[in-house]
Every structure is written in C-alpha cells, then in structure tokens.
Design a protein around this nucleic acid. Structure first.
Lengths: 243, 243
DNA sequence: CGTGCGATTGAGTTGGTTCAAGGCCAGTGG
DNA sequence: CCACTGGCCTTGAACCAACTCAATCGCACG
C-alpha cells in the first residue's frame, strides 16, 4: 500500500477512453497526459467528495476504482455508480455547483484535475456524461427488475464493457478489486447472497473469479442468457471515424 | 378522453417550475407561454420516444404524466423516472443525439417544444437536468436499499415535492393519476404488493388516496419516519434571489 | 345492463435475509 | 521462521418479505 501524496502516471486509461468517445486532436491528448503527470494518490476508503459540497474542479481517475455512494441513517449503504480509470468525477454539466452524491475511493486511487479549454475534450466530457446517465438508467432497471443472479451477471458484464473501453481489459477478463460486500452494496443484495450467486456462476462455468482477476468463460453467451445488450452501442453516438 | 391533436394551454406548470429554478426574465417567460400555446395533445400509453431514436427537439410537458421506461424481453417493465408537468423530455446535455430510454405517456399529455436561445432558460434547463440526475440517484437508493413500505412512502413524498415545485400541489396533496401497476413498475414491486402497502399506509393514517387524489396526513412526520430529506435542497444550487 | 379495467383479498411458495460459526490467507511482529 | 492477527470469504439453518396464482369486487362507461 503506497502512501498518499504525489505520484506520476501516464494517463493511458483516460486517453484511451476519451479518444474512443470523440476523436481527439494532438493538443487534447497532450493536455490529458500533462494533467496525468500531476496526479494525486488517495488511499482506499476515503471520501473524496461529500454530498452537498461545492465542486471546485472536475477530476479524472487515472488509476483505481471509486464509487458514488449514499449512506442511510441506519448504516445501509448503496453504491449508485462505479468510477473506473478514465472516468470523470463531478462532471457537473452546468452551473450546479454542489455534489449530488458522496464519492468514495474503493481501492487506492490516483486522480488529477481534468484539463479545460479544449473543444474536443469538452465534447468528450459531454459524451462521457451522457454515458454516465445511461449507466444510471441501467442500474435502475437492474435493481428494479432483475433477480440476484441476473443483477450480478449484468453488472459484471457492464464492468467488462467499461474496462475494455478504457483499454484495461482483455477480450474476456480484467483485474477485479471489488469485495463481495461492495458488490452487495451495488446490487442491493447482502454479501452472503452475493457469495452464493458468485459460487453459482463459478459452478455453471460462467466466470472465473480469483486472486483479484475476473475472467468470463463466454461473455456473449452469458450476455445473451440474461438478455443484456451493451450500453455503449444503444445509448451513444457512434464514435466518429474510430472503430 | 379528448382526442389527440391541437390544444391550447397556458403553460403555468412550466413557468412555475422553471422560474423556481432560475429567476427568469420577462422574455423567457413570454417565450414559454408562447410555446405552450403551440401545445400538442398525446393520448395515454403512447410511446413518444423510442430508445435509440434521434432526438429532434427538446420537449416540455404542459399537462399530464409520462415516464422513462425500459422493457425486458419477457415483459418485465421498469419505470426509471417520471416526467411531470413542467419537466423536460430529451434534455440531452450535449451533442448526444440518441434517446437513452423510451418515453411513454402514462396519462393523456400535452406537450410542446421548449424554446431555445434564451440564456436564462438555458440555465434553467441545465438546473432541471441536474435535478433529473439527483432523482435518478434517489431512485437507485430507493430500489437498492429501501423495503416496500419505505419505497412507496419515499416515492410519494418525492412526487409531492415535485408537484409543489410545479405549483400543482397544495401543502399536503395533489391529483394522482397513477395506477397501482404503474407504482409497481416504478418501485420494482408487484402491483399486488403495492396494493397491500398502500392499505397499510391508509390504515396507519399516513395517506388518503382515493378518486385520483393523494393527500398526506402529515408529510413531515412521514418523511422523518423513512429518513427522507428533500432532493431539491440537498442536491441543487439554492434558487438565486427567489425564495 | 353488460363489459372491462383496476383494486382487493386469500393461501401457498420462494428468493433472499439473518445470524452465527468457521475457514482462508496475506501481512506483521516476535 | 512461525504464530497471530484482521479482513474477507464460505457455509448452514431458520426465517420472513415479497411474489404467484387465482378469484372476487367495484365502478365508470358505453
């Protein structure tokens, strides 16, 4: 566990992700890289942003996972969305200066302010923000209408999709830092039940999940089984030129 | 049931709501009123927008209720958010030209394109869009961590809050057009269970719900009981000057 | 006076929770 | 080098909130 403080990073994930959303020019990419060099490290389980705080700056995640969460009085916790490398935090589309949710690091994280004043980057931020909304909608359907197994499969596939977008996943797997309790807080289940469902998926030979790595045996078949279609394709402008 | 087609309306709800979000100038208000006069009526249970459709124009709801919904293959349905009079549809914050969800009318509805090119209105749209996100986050927590009774109370109180914002509710009640099945599709429950929970609330003397009107016996007490705080206050810029 | 949609009720079932007790393993300190 | 943590995962058994299925009621409307 490295101590928080200064750190350096090349910003691969951010560049990879944003340039898949919008075809970026050299200046934008360079600005991202430069920003990434000024990255700050934050330990796991730290609150980056509190609900209602003024948003000073827009941040990007260079490394590690964070989450937008809400706590109830009695300790119940809901993770409303995950923030992965390449994602933006506090992407307030406007003059709304207050955070609408708490943001907590789930792992050790490295972040930096996102560069401003580059038209293409602004466009990418906008698309990114639209994607975020699409993921919120997906989360609502997941919680409202899917059963435990479907929820888990659906969220895992979404993560594969997003990690691929950031260039951090192979065709069928990626490094997976979440505990079962975090999965429970995302899916609205208990960690005990998440455990049983993961075992079910393992027994069915759908996934391999061990030592911090998640691998799908056949992601397409699985997606098909729970009736999932990728969010990116359906909810977003097709990447221009790229792809 | 009036036939769809041309209709006229003064746009009270829209003006009321938006001028609570941002202090509008005379020109903006007049533009809203003028737009409202060109309102179009749509029957209940009609799909205004399909997922993936290009968004031609930004619409406002003048009268009636609609919803952003998603259907699963097997007929399960989730209402992701409600659209009330004064709300905007397809408030795409950017160049993202595709609808991220289906929009269906729940009641007979009257709508019109929202005026463009007024700086203060644009600001109001932006705030409105931020609120929409806050409501999505609230919906996620509701579905993920509240039990049936809490979900129902929470959503009903949210609706009170929103209807008041549009000037369509008294201090403790408003006209309520939703069927129990629609409530079920919002709360991720079955209509049978929604029915039982509503009866519970009636028995506890929390609400009166009959002949299309919902009244709270003591909204504050109820809010307190389920640990709910208003979304508007916590997640939004305080209305400047107003209030 | 039907007719049909929505609300209501009952009885049985189940998916997911709760509570509580281990088990595993990486990191730490002696 | 090994024993001792502490965090996370695993397992079992009892329980309960919410679902399912199916019948009935009530009312607005034609």
């Amino acid at each position: 566990m490295r101590p928080p403080g200064r750190a350096s990073f090349d910003g691969t994930a951010v560049v990879h992700r944003l340039s898949r959303l919008v075809e970026l020019d050299e200046a934008s990419v360079e600005a991202l890289r430069a920003a990434a060099r000024r990255g700050r490290a934050v330990e796991q389980r730290v609150e980056i942003l509190q609900e209602g705080w003024p948003i000073r700056e827009r941040l990007m995640i260079l490394r590690g996972w964070a989450a937008r969460t809400r706590m109830l009085e009695d300790g119940r916790r809901q993770i409303m969305s995950l923030l992965l490398p390449g994602d933006l935090i506090g992407n307030c589309h406007h003059e709304s200066p207050l955070a609408t949710s708490m943001v907590t690091t789930l792992t050790d994280v490295e972040l930096c302010p996102s560069p401003e004043g580059f038209p293409l980057l602004d466009e990418a931020y906008a698309v990114s923000s639209a994607m975020e909304e699409a993921y919120l909608l997906a989360e609502i359907t997941r919680l409202g209408r899917l059963n435990a197994e479907e929820r888990l499969v659906d969220i895992l596939l979404e993560l594969l999709e997003r990690m691929q977008l950031a260039g951090l996943a192979s065709r069928d797997g990626f490094d997976f830092p979440l505990t079962q309790e975090m999965l429970a807080d995302m899916t609205g289940l208990t960690s005990v039940h998440v455990n049983r469902m993961l075992q079910l998926l393992r027994r069915q030979d759908d996934i391999i999940l061990k030592s911090g790595r998640l691998t799908f045996r056949n992601a397409d078949r699985l997606a098909n089984r729970v009736g999932r279609s990728p969010v990116v394709v359906s909810g977003l402008p097709r990447p221009q030129g790229t792809q």
